[in-house]
Simulated scan of single mutants.
Amino acid sequence: MKDATSRYIFIWALLGLLLISQAAAAKAPEEFDTTEDTGFYYTIQKGDTLWDLSQKFYNSQWEWPGLWEMNKEIKNPHWIYPGKKIRIYLKSDKTQQLRSIETPEKPAASETPSQPAPIITPTFNYPAVNRIGFIRDKKVDTLGSIIREKDGNVMMSANDIIYIKPAGPEHFILGERYQVFTTEEVKQRIGNKTYRGVKHLIKADFTVMEVNDKYVVGKIGNSYRDATVGDSIMAYYHRDPKLEVQDHPPAIDAVLLGSEDNALMVNDYSIAFINKGTKDNIVPGQIYSVMQSQDKRSVFDGEDAVLLAPLNSGKLIVLHTEDISSTVMILSSKRDIHPGDMVN
């Protein structure tokens, strides 16, 4: 009888341990799925952003563009979803590719230095810089336009064969790359003046496969937006993805013109434009604050209304400059950012 009782106690104790271990496993979801020594998979949690994950795993929020580049399944860096997994690289050569902000190591101190230590300048790497649009005072010279896709597709994207009507056959060189773009007018009231310009949106790039007197044949490589018949062609404009960061640039008094996609609100990582450019000594890599003006209001009951100080809405970095504008990216936002907000 005593042996039977002991066996029952042992069985119930074993069942209890199994139930406790299962409950603990259910309570603590697995966030890290270790693979090879090059890194691991991280399960996205509610509230995560690429900006925050870069700070968490690389000790720098500036790493997020490289993190996005290495996880090509993320189509829009502003939208990452709980439960999905992304790869975090650690020990391979890809780690170096991820380094969006690079701070060179200080040289070893010598007992008798012969020259001053070099100034260390952080850099920001944005791999997608060649796809961003820009605003000029007039449309760029058009080399030609798309007249059709080989199979008659209305929307054209990567690997499609396109036919182009050239403005002149001398404009196209076999094997060279070109860009497909479209334009729209920008008109915005700023103070007592009206800002005017032409927004250029890059849709794709292609390589010339054949040049004839009447048409040019090309194959689309990178596709950022669907190309259509009538879209214009311009020379491929290569921009350096590595920018020297200037966190405290000279003061400016600029206005946010809006985003590439004309959204009513400009979100984190969105590409947008401001109304100042090279004529105002703006260069890529400069970081500015986005400010939101407040209405006049009474601070205390019964007193006259006063204009309160602007609210800091977030930060942006300059990616590209033209004479009358700059293309920027919103790095972070504390509140909703809208076209017309101040930049300084």
Rank of each mutant, 00 (worst) to 15 (best):
F134A: 05
P250K: 02
G218F: 08
Y58C: 01
L15F: 12
R148H: 12
K187F: 12
K334C: 00
D341E: 06
R335T: 05
P113N: 01
P249Y: 02
A204R: 15
R239D: 03
P127G: 06
T194M: 12
N344V: 01
E36H: 14
I101P: 00
T183Y: 03
F10E: 03
V306A: 09
V140Y: 14
D295W: 02
N192Q: 11
I202T: 10
K150L: 10
G197S: 08
Q188N: 06
F32A: 00
Q61S: 15
V343N: 10
F57V: 01
G47V: 02
V343M: 06
L316W: 04
E184R: 12
V283H: 15
D280L: 04
M156W: 08
L307N: 12
Y42W: 11
L319V: 01
H248P: 00
D160K: 04
K56W: 11
F32Y: 13
S6P: 00
Q96M: 08
V154Q: 08
F32D: 06
T35R: 15
I271M: 04
N222S: 13
S232V: 03
L98E: 01
D231M: 05
A13R: 03
T321H: 02
D240F: 14
Q179Y: 07
A128N: 09
R131K: 13
N159P: 05
V129C: 10
N212C: 04
D48L: 06
R239V: 04
T34A: 05
I164E: 04
P241L: 08
Q188V: 04
A4C: 05
A109Y: 08
I252S: 07
I88G: 04
Q115K: 13
L311Y: 07
A309C: 06
E260I: 03
S157T: 08
P29F: 14
E102R: 04
